[in-house]
């Protein structure tokens, strides 16, 4: 477990910024809520452990130093991992955090939820609502109609194009969905 160096921090922040936009500042600077009562939890910080990036409060990190490096499985919230090539990928575990600070959102019709959770992209026919001003390439968080975060991905079309698009047209390319907790249980 170690803090990220400058290059790594920049890579992580750039990925998060695609989803949260200026809310990233709130996400990084908010006071922590984890940790035991009576102890000042401090802020949240990023830690790298076995190529994975964790988002944890400072008090939690302090406690985690008591665990040997090879025994430590996880701490706080896993945001994603660095690939062998050195690029950063967000994983499903970051979904709750992204949903809380997301700038661009997409809501699915109840009929399209299952298809999305099986790992398929969001089609125009399954789209119930979409936030204004999405442009292709933006990070988008996918919600059910009851505002339950289901996953996230990258927008393939802008909001205006979505209105004209065909029913089979892909609106959001999936990056991660909650179904991965079952499908890729071992890898997470």
């Amino acid at each position: 477990m170690r803090p990220l160096d400058e290059k790594e921090t920049a890579a992580v922040f750039e990925k998060l910024f695609k989803f949260t936009g200026p809310n990233l500042k709130v996400m990084v600077e908010r006071p922590a809520v984890e940790g035991p009562a009576g102890d000042d939890p401090g802020r949240y910080c990023l830690r790298l452990h076995k190529n994975r990036v964790y988002y944890a409060s400072e008090s939690l990190v302090r406690r985690a130093t008591n665990v040997a490096r090879d025994r430590l499985v996880s701490l706080g919230t896993c945001l994603g991992k660095f690939t062998k090539g050195g690029s950063f990928r967000l994983t499903v575990q970051s979904l709750d955090l992204l949903a809380a600070h997301a700038r661009r959102k997409v809501w699915l019709k109840p009929t399209a939820e299952m298809s999305f959770l099986y790992g398929n992209p969001v089609l125009k026919s399954g789209l119930a609502r979409i936030t204004e001003g999405v442009s292709p390439g933006d990070g988008v968080v996918v919600f059910s109609m009851s505002d339950l975060p289901l996953g996230f991905g990258v927008a393939a079309r802008s909001t205006q194009d979505c209105r004209k698009a065909h029913a089979d047209a892909i609106v959001v390319n999936r990056q991660a969905d909650a179904g991965e907790y079952l499908r890729n249980e071992d890898d997470l």
């Binding site: 477990m1 170690r2 803090p3 400058e6 921090t9 920049a10 922040f13 750039e14 910024f17 200026p22 990233l24 500042k25 990084v28 802020r43 910080c45 990023l46 830690r47 400072e58 990190v61 302090r62 130093t65």
Partner: peptide, 23 residues
């Protein structure tokens, strides 16, 4: 990994710097 009480918050500075650049 964990900054002591007497230490300046280097990590906070680094994060703030990168965040400002990004913004």
């Amino acid at each position: 990994v964990v900054e002591g009480k007497g230490m300046s918050s280097q990590e906070k500075q680094q994060t703030a710097k990168i965040l400002d650049q990004l913004m």
